[in-house]
Computed example of a mutant assay.
Amino acid sequence: MQRLDRLDAGELRVGSTARLKQPGQSSAVWTVTRLEPERDFSWRTSRAGVRMTGRHLLAAVDGGTRMTLVLETEGPAAGLLSALFGGLMRASLRREAAGFARQAAAVG
């Protein structure tokens, strides 16, 4: 992630919005659609015939936490987007997961 700007004030909640800029992609506004503290954070964006939902799932395992990142695509252009940019999207998710892991290790 290159940049994240909250577009509203206050505590993060369902309906909160942020502009996200990721490497190799144009910026997009994402809206929080689900928030269960310490369990599930999901948000959605739409562009060019594709709706994308990003999910960040946390689960307690063996004295630690497992994080699962999911990117779901739907809409008329979803198949084409996945075919053309699936590898880039998977690489982006791996970088994001590695960044989360570094931050978690630094905290605890």
Rank of each mutant, 00 (worst) to 15 (best):
F41I: 08
K21A: 14
L88S: 02
R95W: 14
E96H: 03
V29G: 14
E96G: 08
W43C: 06
A91V: 01
A83M: 02
R34A: 15
M67F: 14
H56L: 04
Q25P: 00
A28Y: 07
Q25E: 02
P37Y: 07
M67A: 13
F85Q: 05
A28Q: 09
R95C: 07
A104M: 10
A78E: 06
T33A: 07
R3S: 15
V14F: 10
F41L: 15
Q22L: 09
A18M: 14
L35M: 12
L93Q: 09
L69V: 02
V107N: 02
A59P: 01
F41E: 12
M1A: 14
F100W: 15
L12S: 05
P76R: 07
R3I: 11
Q22A: 13
R13E: 13
T68N: 04
G79P: 05
R34S: 15
W30Q: 04
L20D: 01
S26C: 00
F85S: 12
T68L: 12
E11K: 09
R34K: 07
G99S: 03
D40Q: 06
R51H: 10
G86F: 08
L69P: 02
F41V: 11
R34F: 13
R47Y: 00
E72P: 02
R6I: 04
R13I: 05
L69I: 01
V70Y: 05
M1I: 07
G86W: 04
T68R: 13
R6M: 14
M52Q: 07
H56A: 12
R95F: 14
